[in-house]
Amino acid sequence: MNFLRTGLVAAGVGIVLVSGVFGVSAQASKEAVIKERQEFMKAQGGDAKAVSDYAKGQGDQAAAQKAAEDLIARAPKIMALFPAGTSTTEFPDKTKAKPELFTETDKVKAMITAMQADQTKLLEAVKAGNAAGAGEQLGAMNKDGCGACHGAYRTKSS
């Protein structure tokens, strides 16, 4: 009987510990994805700057082309960087992603799709050596994608 009671207590303690470990682990995993997406966005910004510099006659075409290709390669990965439970509600001091971003996924996906179309044209303009056209497409990409999403779903203004 004592053995049974001890066993039950041990099992209970085990469950609590395992749940705790999983809880901590899940929390750490969410913090990790927030950090990952922030790094991801910095890389996006770096590429956008490379294209912007080229459009303004301050950067070279090869760097702008590489940047445009990187932007295209990264676009399909964006949604996965915003798993549920990683908004300002859960992590007010670590992220600026509004909770609506995680519920209005259709709108976010539409923004990404529009941005991808702009990115394709952006790459074409850069490849053609059309700096002015690249600047226009960068503006379109910003309006339809980056800016649209940041405007609707980020609390920080800049």
Binding site: G46, D47, A50
Partner: peptide
Amino acid sequence: GMTPDGDSVGG
């Protein structure tokens, strides 16, 4: 709407 580091303004 683009900052010097390539970010897009939000909010």
